[in-house]
Amino acid sequence: MDIRLFKKLLEQQLISETEFENIKRQDTAPVSVYWEVTSVLYIGILLLTGGLGILVYKNIDTIGHAVIIALIAAMSISCFAYCYKNSKGYSNQKIESPKVLFDYVLLFGCLLLLTFIAYLQFEYKVFGTDWGMATFIPMVLLFFVAYYFDHLGVLSMAITNLAAWAGFTVAPLNIVDANDFSDKKLIYTGIILGAGLLALSFVSIKRHIKEHFAFTYKNFGAHILFISLLAGLFHFDHIYLLWFLILATVAFLFFKNSIAEKSFYFLVLTVLYFYIGGSYVVCRVLVSGGSTGGLYTTSIYFIASGIGLIKTLIYYNQFLRKNAHL
């Protein structure tokens, strides 16, 4: 902290004597290593559950695995017991976690629970060959835990599970590789799932049920919906203009919403997804026109649209800034 600067501000009477004392106290206050310590804790939990998972998997046919499974179950149960004991009970509002460790214990319990269910299915085929059931049960449990104990991380896990249940793997990085988007069914599933999550986000706010969950729903929903729409645009060759129309409508709605909510995140996301779709259509039209001429016009299109969008984004950045309020 630049104490000399604040001294100057004090002399200019921009800050008061007490405020200056506050600042001096802040400067000498203990350094908080909260972030560092909790990060180590979080990574530790991930490593431990990962290690347990591999341990179970490697020992699946030996006597030892029963012990390990019992251990996992016992640990998971004690985690949930701890959380239940310390929890303040369910509320539609946001609940601050009662203790620092609370969120981590809950997360640990959930990860162990998933390992446990995966084991039951793998070894005893509890849910038979019905993989739908095998992902449905943990999903319901996770949603319940997320709402009851108010945990955004568990909510994300639950949504991922929901997507898995819908025949979809929503891992952020391999979302495009891991799914065979040539499958029409998957595209429709994605659209319904995305729209459904957006609806949930809307309902959360409208009904005042865990309003702070709305962003997580909206975030997952927006990405899934846009990627599915783009997949539809690329896949359905003969009616691609129709798909573009749908994409444009959705993008327009998102655009209006992000302006209304002053959300730069959704503004940028919408613009970029729409830019991909729009450029695809423009390129198709331009390239189909002629051989090398198409290449020139395509280049010019990208230069012009790139610069144009930069100007637009900066314009809206300033527009939102002017209309911002606390």
Binding site: A29, P30, V31, S32, V33, Y34, V37, T38, V40, L41, I43, G44, I45, L46, L47, L48, T49, G50, G51, L52, I54, L55, V100, L101
Partner: peptide, 30 residues
């Protein structure tokens, strides 16, 4: 993984406990 995980959890838990009242100029204030 197990050893590293247990170690990391134990150390961070101990730190959270130990620094709950700030010591040596460090704290775990959120």
């Amino acid at each position: 993984l197990l050893v590293a995980g247990v170690l990391m959890i134990a150390i961070s838990y101990a730190m959270l406990r130990y620094l709950s009242i700030s010591k040596y100029g460090f704290s775990v204030d959120k």
